[in-house]
């Protein structure tokens, strides 16, 4: 267990996994003709899926830490939240690039902006970019820990926007969104529940809930 935790906590391991996912799912199929009949669409979908699952992974890590404070594995994975978050942003940018190629010209690109799902995607991506740009020590210091934390809670808004973006982007795509949405929502709910029950009962219950909700991040 300790050894697994050490491997999982290794920075190089994390980076090669995050880049490896892209090489394995995007680059190798692209070079070997494995993208199928509609390669641009495949890249479009894959980059989007990778981005949203990485965002989901980051958002799962902090409640997992609250739920399993003693787990070394969860602690090890939590070291990589920044790297995973920035990767999510990079894959989302690749997703945008694939969209530009898919539309094939300015006309199509502009026309795509007549549809709401593009706006949800663009809003989510904008948040990811802001969060990625401010994901360094310098930003934390200059914003102040509290403000920085508040700013980075936008990740939840981004996730909601992007799950919705995915759900309404295609014909039956809402079937995939739920696999992301319900687990994440359950984790958050479990964390809030746990914090409620762990809290000493001296405070009024309503205040306790409010504080817990406010503390949840």
């Amino acid at each position: 267990m300790n050894r697994l935790a050490r491997i999982l906590g290794n920075r190089l391991f994390a980076l090669s996994t995050l880049i490896g996912i892209g090489i394995w799912l995007l680059v190798v199929p692209a070079l070997t003709g494995g993208l199928g009949a509609n390669p641009v669409e495949k890249l479009l979908h894959l980059t989007g899926e990778i981005a949203i699952w990485m965002l989901g992974a980051v958002l799962a890590l902090s409640p997992l830490r609250a739920l399993f404070p003693k787990s070394r594995i969860v602690a090890a994975l939590n070291r990589h939240r920044r790297a995973i978050g920035v990767s999510a942003c990079i894959y989302a940018l690749l997703h945008l690039a694939a969209h530009v190629v898919y539309e094939g010209g300015l006309d199509g690109l502009l026309r795509s902006f007549s549809k709401p799902f593009i706006w949800y995607g663009a809003a989510g991506l904008s948040i990811l970019i802001i969060l990625a740009v401010t994901s360094n020590q310098f930003s934390i210091r200059s914003l102040g820990g509290r403000n920085w934390k508040l700013l980075h809670r936008l990740a939840y808004i981004a996730a909601a926007l992007l799950v919705y973006h995915q759900a309404i982007a295609g014909k039956g795509h809402w079937h995939t969104g739920r696999w992301l949405f319900f687990p994440l929502a359950s984790l958050q709910l479990a964390r809030i529940t746990k914090q409620l029950f762990m809290r000493p009962a001296r405070k009024h219950r309503a205040t306790a809930i409010l504080t817990t909700v406010a503390n949840a991040r």
Binding site: V101, G105, G108, S112
Partner: peptide, 19 residues
């Protein structure tokens, strides 16, 4: 309601073929 029907992607037309 969720996307445009003005154009279509032709399957097999190539990576940069557009619509």
């Amino acid at each position: 309601p969720r996307w445009s029907q003005k154009s279509e992607r032709v399957i097999g037309a190539g990576f940069f073929s557009g619509k």
